[in-house]
Nucleic acid binder design. Structure first.
Lengths: 188, 188, 188, 188
DNA sequence: TATGAATGAGGTTTCATTCAT
DNA sequence: AATGAATGAAACCTCATTCAT
């Protein structure tokens, strides 16, 4: 009948929001985001009911994207270390390919505007990854640590390596390697 | 030297800002901070030239505080691992004693309002700690990694352990121990 | 004549506008009215050139409806009081049957959006009723009052009685009677 | 110490709001009202927490003012009709002196923004007037009518006469007289 | 110096109206 | 003709900063 709500514009808005958050933090303005997406200020609100809504949806999307890409092509039968290395490389590839998405997520994670419901939904979407993490944890010396602790150790080393790879792209390969080794030692 | 001996109100404002940032992120209002400090809104600006100024000074203060407390009473002659464990415990003690300060710092680190100059000055104030870190790094398998990478690995594991200890105070002692071991393995 | 035979949608929009004005005052939105009428937002503007236009047309319609129904079946030859009572009952019946229309009119009458032209046209449509009013007025003690004053005295008592009947339907008959008596005394 | 919240400005805002409502209905803008009062847009909100708040306070004020002025100097011992005429004249004097206040009230009364609490408070403030009304009602043929009906009959005739007096100031005295007579007949 | 009212730019959101389909 | 997404001008309200007292 008429122009349907173009998912292209939704995408553009989400992408523009990512860029705006990287540039201006969570203070990024709805007008700025709309402009970045090439739409009118009012159109922001035909795709998202409020700025908070956009923030929550973006958070969810980014989390889902990270989770999905991380489990891509993991060799199921292989030794655990090899599987872990594969996941690690997936993470690093994502980080290098979409540095902005990671930066934006860093802000979103800290925001009081992200609801507990959204956070829970994000957990849910990362189901496979979390399952893999559990196996990893149960295999090493963090076996007896509180699960959340082991998870965040893993996560922290990942983040740190990603940051370093983005900061010094010329050493990316070496950092990927070094990072994984430190990571494997830490959780072994 | 540097700061004029800060009046009581300056202190109150800095403390109130810490609390406000934890509660509302960097969107905390100057009026709210002033109220939290028990002073008039206008007085904020007799102690800080702008909100950005307050943010920068707070960042500097918190960084300095962390650095100073971390090197407190380190047994200079002892084996490196023992010294490292001492530093580790200092960190954990600080984190447990002042969880708000850490939370506030997390926000400040991400802010575009913190100038490069401020960040450089913070580095400067952490001189001793950085020197110790260098020794630590050069001793293990991160010897050949870019210095910034090693530092952030160390930092990340520290942060993660602090978080866990604050989240689950009943396991604080165990987590402190487990965290240090993972950390030591990672950088060895 | 005048209006082209109004389509079903025009009717629906007018009715939905009546309901929306009762619910939200003149701030009722065009989109809301369209939704209430079961048509698309854009369709509003194929039937009315603007919101102001709709408001004016609705005003005219409601005024006309009141006027028409009031003169329905008046016994021409009967004594004046009897005729007046008949009119009075017509009014009351209308008010009880369509309370929303009266409420909406209350808002419209006050609106700056209703043009003098529209108001004049409404007068015109109420020709018969006004004529009857004139006879009534000239018969009693308001004979020498400015015509507009007498009219509004009559109108005010009518309105007030309608309101009361709607507010307390269980006393409708008594109120209709009492109201008419007060009214007749006032203009006698 | 400092500039106290000047009640002069509050007054100016309330008065400007009255004028703005007469001119533009309840759609009058906060910026417009502020400008009319000669203050900055932001200052509106140091005196009223929201537009709705202003509307409610204005409603209350105007109602109180009407009520107070109406009972001014009523000859307590005199015959009821004489007392009633005195009240009547007070009303008319108020209406002629402050036509804008009446017009604004007409809008406010219809607004969905005026809370039941505010309406109740207004009733409370009009205590003396309501008591007098009760006596009046109990004296005539509306004795057995629902109280709200009698009140609104009285109110309606008052309003109508006020309107006429404002519309045709040259006949003010005659209209005041005629109106009272119609009124007295209606409630007798 | 301390106070808090005053200021007005700017942020989020609404909504009458237009226009692509 | 019908649809509803697109538009952008306001509207309401917030807040860093200034300034009268």
């Amino acid at each position: 009948m008429v122009r349907p709500k173009s998912s292209e514009k939704r995408r553009a808005l989400l992408d523009a929001a990512t860029a705006a958050i990287v540039a201006h933090g969570l203070g990024a303005t709805t007008a700025g985001i709309a402009q970045g997406a090439g739409v009118a200020t009012g159109s922001f609100f035909t795709y998202f009911s409020s700025k908070t809504d956009l923030l929550n949806q973006l958070y969810l999307e980014l989390k889902a994207e990270v989770a999905a890409s991380s489990m891509d092509g993991v060799p199921q039968g292989a030794p655990l270390r090899e599987q872990a290395y594969h996941v690690w490389q997936n993470w690093m590839a994502f980080a290098v390919a979409f540095p902005e998405k990671r930066r934006a997520l860093t802000h979103l994670v800290l925001s009081e505007e992200i609801t507990p419901e959204t956070r829970a939904a994000a957990q849910e979407m990362a189901h496979d990854m979390l399952h893999f993490m559990t196996r990893l944890r149960d295999h090493g010396s963090l076996r007896d640590a509180p699960p959340a602790f082991a998870d965040s150790v893993i996560n922290a080393l990942t983040e740190v390596t990603m940051d370093a790879m983005i900061r010094e792209p010329q050493h990316a390969a070496q950092l990927c390697e070094l990072g994984f080794k430190a990571y494997w030692r830490a959780i072994s």
